[in-house]
Design a protein around this nucleic acid. Structure first.
Lengths: 195, 195
DNA sequence: ACCTGAACACCGTTCAAGT
DNA sequence: ACCTGAACACCGTTCAAGT
């Protein structure tokens, strides 16, 4: 599934194993306890020294981005799959709810993505761009179908979803996030909800 | 303006001065550099030892809540003032934009408020409750006027505003927050925007 | 080329001793 | 009753020494 950045030269076998071990450990830790992971613990669990973690992931942000890269790709794939769904509006809705689930599952996935350097060529940048483009197709189909206002930007909608995930991270009201998403959806529709 | 919690017995004069100095220092620091303040620095700038800071504010959260308590009260006062404005819808809009400004100015004010313990009797809890109630009046007036959907909760809207402020904290696009707020506003209106 | 882990730095938090 | 600041703890980050 995941392979390290297309380096100039291939990585040594043990380095490759360490990289994968670190990433998998971090992935599990983030999904279980959120982004407040202790790097020393990650290294220990992965069976390597702390220096090795830093060699592969120079900053905490780098590690977190690697963790969420898979999810970003997954979301792109889901968008691509939904692009041929029969009802454009429903496809968009499904995808937005999927975004919410991922953002909530991965804890502050939105925060990490937003903190990512906007540098073309970066893996996270390209993955994100591809995801947005795939999402934009869904949006556009729903716009052509006359269901969504033509002046809406996909990026704004995604960020709103991230925002909803963020403010509901420690929320007591489990239904609040859904109500908030419904408000956003109502905001991007051309006609008021007819159900 | 701000006075410490209504203690069982009044505070000693020097304690009162230290409390005020710490709070003012923190307020300035937060407004300048955000909530990532170094407590040791705050104490030093306030002219007291670190132990004194901890005596008055047992946790970082306590200090931050004290910082944002004033802003919460200010927003309540603004809502109360707007309650007699001629056009209910416009009053609500003004207040929501005010919320955005405050959340942005105070950096992660929303995050701090959301992390606050929901314990009745707490100063921050009561201040927040009062603010929400004052805001709810604005919402209700606009609902009675037929401008806002009757099923909208003020709390959801405020949280959405916090979410917008959060995801735009390090954003490059300075207009994004306004577009996102416009989407939310469109979502709570009964009729599509007529301008 | 990569790994190890001791060493350093930074910052939060406590608490014995002072006034 | 409150203040001081040394002491401890925790965790991030670096880098000389190893393979």
């Amino acid at each position: 599934m995941y392979e390290p950045a297309p380096a100039s030269r291939p990585m040594r076998a043990d380095a490759q194993r360490n990289y994968a071990s670190l990433l998998n450990t971090a992935r599990v830790a983030v999904s279980e306890r959120g982004t407040d992971i202790v790097l020393e613990d990650i290294a220990k669990s992965a069976g390597v020294a702390i220096g090795t973690l830093y060699r592969h992931f120079p900053t905490r942000q780098d590690l977190l981005e690697a963790v969420f890269l898979d999810e970003t790709n997954e979301l792109r794939a889901r968008a691509e799959a939904l692009a041929s769904a029969p009802v454009p509006f429903d496809a968009l809705m499904s995808w937005l709810r999927l975004q919410m689930d991922f953002a909530a599952f991965g804890r502050s996935m939105g925060a990490v993505i937003m903190a990512a350097k906007h540098v073309p060529g970066t893996r996270i940048y390209e993955a994100n761009k591809a995801m947005h483009e795939a999402g934009a197709v869904l949006l556009q189909r729903a716009q052509v179908a006359g269901e969504i206002r033509p002046d809406v930007h996909m990026l704004d909608v995604i960020r709103l979803v991230y925002g909803i995930a963020l403010v509901n991270e420690h929320a007591s009201d489990p239904d609040g996030a859904n109500r908030m998403l419904d408000l956003v959806i109502a905001g991007i529709r051309t006609k008021p909800s007819r159900d």
